[in-house]
Amino acid sequence: MATATQSKLHVTDLHFRRRKIADRLAFIALSACAGITVFMLLIILSYIFYKGATQIDWNFLTALPKPAGEPGGGIRNALIGSVIIVALASLMAMPIGIGTAIFLNEFPSFWVGRAIRFLADVLTAVPSIVVGLAVYTLVVRPMGSFSGFSGSVAYAFIMIPIIIITAQEALRLVPSNLREASLALGVPRWRTILMIVLPVSSRALLTGLILAVARALGETAPMLFTSFGNAFGNVNISKPTATVPVVIYRYATGPYDDWHSQAWAAAFILVGVILLASIITRFVIRSKFDE
């Protein structure tokens, strides 16, 4: 009798222990998954740092590229080109993006709002190379040449949905009693939005803009058919213009060792700027997940 109870206990005990072990193994496997993801990030970043940081000197930042095959030279043209193209793209994308977000949030109309929000969501998913092709037939062909301007249009396409989505979220978080207080004082709605709602949400709006800029800075594929590239220090936006990501692509797939090391150096600068932007946004406004 006693032994039977004992063995029964023993069986449940075994069963329980097996479940415990399964739980333990699952925990280890799941944390390993998270670990692998972070590990990949660290490995890639440290490799870029290791290969790129050592290559950077003043000359690399300020000199123009040397003719193919000659060692030395820098990426001044691409740095300036990227800044010009992205700045122009921001000027196009910001008013449209924030205006649309104001329309969606401050003048809510169920169907139109939903449809536009859905469009924005779908637009973020359009492959950037497809955007490049569309801008090629829209701008490059009629203009007759690759140009920095067409590159800006392509970047604006990519930035607009990002700005809409982040700005709408930013406006949504503005407490509505601020609006009501202003309206109750007789301030017209447009001034309420411009003087109260936008300033209150300015940090979150800025975050969205920085995210969009960071995203655009690294986009390569659309630039292959729009801004193309340029080995001279071109600042005329109606001419082909070099950008940093395209230079990385050209140099990485080119045949010369010196190009390869310059590609790493350019990659270091690009990743550095993008991560810096992400760190800034993180401390301008804390991520949703922390709240």
């Binding site: 998270a34 993801t37 990030l41 890639i44 690294g218 990385i248 990485a252 790493w264 690009l270 993008i274």
Partner: peptide
């Protein structure tokens, strides 16, 4: 950290 991995441009993954 996970989202930072998403911020790295495609061309950098290509280079690496």
């Amino acid at each position: 950290l996970v989202e930072s991995l998403a911020a790295i441009p495609s061309v950098i993954f290509g280079l690496w």
